[in-house]
Design a protein around this nucleic acid. Structure first.
Length: 787
DNA sequence: GATAGCGCT
């Protein structure tokens, strides 16, 4: 709020970054590159400034405000010139008996790993990398799978950035938490340091860094969060955006932000790492930055197309898997499908067919595993089990077949896959700004995606990929790249973030792929109704507060308003429950039992309150020290998702406290206990309201009013004329899911701007109904006033 | 009367 960006690192930041117990020379000196705006700590001639005090520690100590500027005695790095080092210097420093950063003797494991690191393709180009890195502020780096870029490049940077001199960190972003964690661990091992000390990671719910940390792996979303309070990213001397080709929302915003920041901060370096051949697009975007390409280490994959288009891709996929199993050499199979149900179904069918094949021919055995994101982790782990052995000695070898969603395209790597079956579809998010609805649609994949899938067959030896579409279709019908997420999303949250990031002119904010103006308009409009932006489009106090929460604006506004309704404790729980996957479990075979159990928690006013009942019961079980896992299982509830809601709730609660928002409840015996909660729901969801037309059929109000059905999962009976919903689901029909009954008076009272009757542009009968409600309210007020 | 791809704060 006060940290308006002025294009310079503030004096406060500099103080914070320098060591408090050492007087740092802050006088400005002319440096070689002619930039005289930097303090003396950048001057290479002062690099050894503190080496004469005789106070060397064998291990440098953190000082609580940025890592120490001290190097261990005899460290070869003492003679390095920042951003002027060579691969040879680094090579020799790495060969030393002692760790140049900690002074500790190197372990045997270190030297073993060092040997394998030097076999990575990227190692040969270390000097070439340094040459480009040193002469350019921005660098685009293309490395295919197996090049070692994610682990090696950040280390090369550290050896050249010399964080003890810059007193700034090197950051490397990842789209996924697991990647940030596992790569950080690997690199800590490679550098022979303890994870969380010199090398750390930072993800939601876990900050494993310390004052010693010089290299930090983090999720892209985490860096974006940090930037909200440090618009210049002044803690970092170099930022590496990894997996940029995935084009996540956060990466796209970070790219645009960093494109601006690098102009304000000439000392900040940026490396954009990508795996595709689409690198020219990144180069062009970043002012024709130099490009370095490193070959990967994969095996060739032979591609086969079907001669004719497939009528039914699932059936074609099953047939292909069986043909591979019957006729091809040893090696595991990976089949890409689109969703949980399709995958479970297909797994069953393949298993049955294989049983028959084994009975009738000399085929080996085959185990089939499903794989998708909502599968519990221990079941996901099963895909790494070895293929089954031959049925009898000397028989044909067994194999495993994994039937997976897109999760196996990027997030999970399975070694040993030799055959990939690619029907060419995946579920993709689509945003319809006219209806303000995000939905999932089975759509053809892109060429880049098809290549990525094929590549999964060549990780351990040459493989084969069977594409269930024609070569002509591949060439002429598939788009080059999947549309980036920013073009397929509701941008309300993104626009709020950008405002908080200090982006004033959204129209000219230089995104790599600017979204449709209509989508932008919708987001601004939504934020204005939520009072996060004022009529001039400026961030309001409420908007600033809302951006502090890792939530959609409607949920954040609801939570912030809840103390006024004396129910912030309850709204914390409801918000958390709405932020995690479905807590109700409904196995295909036991639907009736599951529904019966759900009824135990049923609240007549709707699903939000029913979920709250579940959460309270869950907490009761935890507090009594009972076995919550068993309790959940018995009640057809997801222990994992309820625990995760509990975790989210704790985080939201901390933010409430630091923002000075009161945590209050209405007395449970007060008749307003549930009314207060339902009224608080309206403050965030007044735009997601439907009015009853006939039994179980409702109609949404504004925004291309749609006829909708209550989702069959709702506990709500039909007594409510007005309902509020959390989600609009477009499948075979239009459904509203997670629904709670409300009173129309609350709409007029709590969202007067949106429910302004005179300017009403929605359904006429809704307008009349609202008018009648308004008249009734006026009469009531007049009567009250009359007494 | 039921159709949640993946991921992030």
């Amino acid at each position: 709020m006060s940290d308006k960006s002025n294009g310079k690192v503030s004096q406060n930041d500099k103080k914070r970054l320098s060591s408090p117990d050492v007087e740092t020379p802050m006088k400005r000196v002319k440096t070689e590159d002619g930039d005289d705006s930097k303090p003396a700590e950048y001057n290479k001639y002062l690099a050894h400034w503190e080496t004469g005090d005789g106070g060397w520690d064998s291990k440098y100590k953190g000082n609580g405000s940025g890592f120490s500027d001290r190097l261990p005695k005899g460290s070869p790095l003492a003679h390095f010139e920042r951003r002027k080092t060579t691969a040879k210097q680094a090579f020799e420093a790495e060969n030393g008996d002692n760790n140049p950063f900690t002074g500790e003797p190197h372990s045997q494991q270190y030297f073993n790993i060092l040997k394998s690191r030097r076999n990575l393709p990227v190692h040969k180009q270390r000097q070439e990398f340094l040459d480009l890195y040193q002469k350019s502020q921005i660098l685009v780096f293309v490395g295919e799978t197996g090049s070692g870029k994610t682990t090696q490049i950040p280390q090369y940077v550290v050896y050249d950035e010399l964080p003890h001199l810059s007193r700034k960190l090197v950051a490397c972003t990842q789209p996924r938490r697991v990647a940030a964690m596992s790569v950080a661990q690997r690199v800590a091992d490679e550098l022979d340091v303890t994870l969380g000390e010199e090398v750390g990671y930072s993800i939601r719910f876990e900050d494993k860094t310390s004052s010693k940390t010089m290299l930090k792996y983090m999720t892209d979303g985490m860096l974006l969060r940090e930037a909200m309070h440090d618009h210049d990213m002044s803690r970092y001397s170099c930022i590496i955006l990894d997996e940029a080709h995935e084009r996540t929302l956060a990466t796209d915003i970070l790219m645009a932000l960093l494109k601006q920041i690098t102009r304000r901060r000439p000392d900040l370096k940026l490396i954009v790492m990508s795996a595709t051949l689409d690198a020219q697009k990144f180069q062009r975007y970043f002012y024709d930055a130099p490009l370095l390409a490193v070959p990967g280490r994969t095996f060739p994959v032979e591609i086969f197309y079907t001669p004719e288009p497939e009528k039914d891709y699932v059936e074609g996929a099953i047939r292909t898997v069986l043909q591979i199993h019957a006729g091809e050499d040893e090696g595991d199979i990976l089949l890409f499908l689109t969703g949980e149900e399709e995958i479970e179904d297909t797994c069953r069918k393949i298993s049955l067919e294989v049983d028959e094949l084994v009975r009738e021919t000399d085929c080996g055995p085959m185990t089939v595993y499903p794989l998708y994101g909502t599968l519990p982790p221990h079941q996901q782990q099963k895909i790494f089990d070895l293929a089954p052995p031959p049925l009898k000695k000397g028989g044909r070898p067994g194999r495993k077949c994994i039937v997976s969603t897109n999760i196996a395209e990027t997030s999970l790597t399975i070694d040993g896959i030799v055959y990939v079956v690619d029907p060419g579809f995946s579920k993709q998010k689509i945003y319809n700004p006219r209806l303000r609805v995000e939905s999932l649609l089975v759509s053809p994949i892109s060429k880049a995606s098809a290549q990525q899938r094929a590549g999964r067959a060549g990780r351990t030896k040459p493989g084969k990929c069977f594409r269930l579409y024609t070569e002509k279709a591949f060439k002429e019908e598939l788009i080059e790249q999947t549309y980036p997420e920013i073009l397929r999303s509701n941008l309300a949250n993104t626009v709020l973030e950008l405002k908080k990031l200090g982006v004033v002119d959204l129209v000219h904010f230089d995104l790599m792929d600017p979204p449709a103006p209509e989508t932008m308009m919708r987001a601004l409009e939504e934020l204005n109704y939520l009072r996060c932006l004022d009529d001039e489009g400026e961030l309001t106090a409420l908007g600033g507060l809302a951006s502090e929460f890792p939530l959609d604006p409607s949920l954040a506004v609801m939570l912030i308003s809840s103390p006024e309704f004396y129910c912030s404790n309850e709204m914390l729980s409801i918000t958390a429950l709405l932020s995690v996957p479905q807590i109700f479990v409904r196995p295909a075979q036991k639907r009736r039992e599951a529904d019966e159990m759900k009824n135990l928690f049923k609240h007549n006013d709707g699903d939000h309150l029913t979920m709250l009942n579940v959460y309270h019961a869950f907490k009761g079980v935890l507090n009594r020290g009972e076995d919550a896992r068993t309790w959940c299982h018995k009640h057809y509830l997801s222990f994992r998702h309820l625990s995760s809601a509990d975790n989210v709730r704790a985080q939201l609660k901390r933010i409430m406290e630091t923002q000075g928002l009161r945590l209050v409840s209405t007395d449970f015996n007060d008749k307003n206990y549930y009314i207060n909660i339902r009224r608080a729901l309206v403050t965030g969801f007044f735009m997601q309201v439907a009015k009853k037309e006939k039994d179980r059929v409702y109609r949404t109000l504004k925004d291309n009013s749609q006829q909708v059905m209550l989702h069959p999962s709702t506990v709500l009976q039909t007594e409510y004329d007005w309902v509020l919903y959390n989600e609009f689901v477009m499948t075979s029909k239009h459904y509203i899911r997670t629904v709670t009954g409300i009173k129309p008076e609350w709409l007029l009272e709590l969202a007067p701007a949106y429910y302004d009757i005179d300017s009403w542009d929605g359904q006429k009968d809704v307008k009349l109904a609202l008018k009648a409600v308004a008249d009734k309210m006026r009469r009531r007020a007049a009567m009250k006033g009359g007494h």
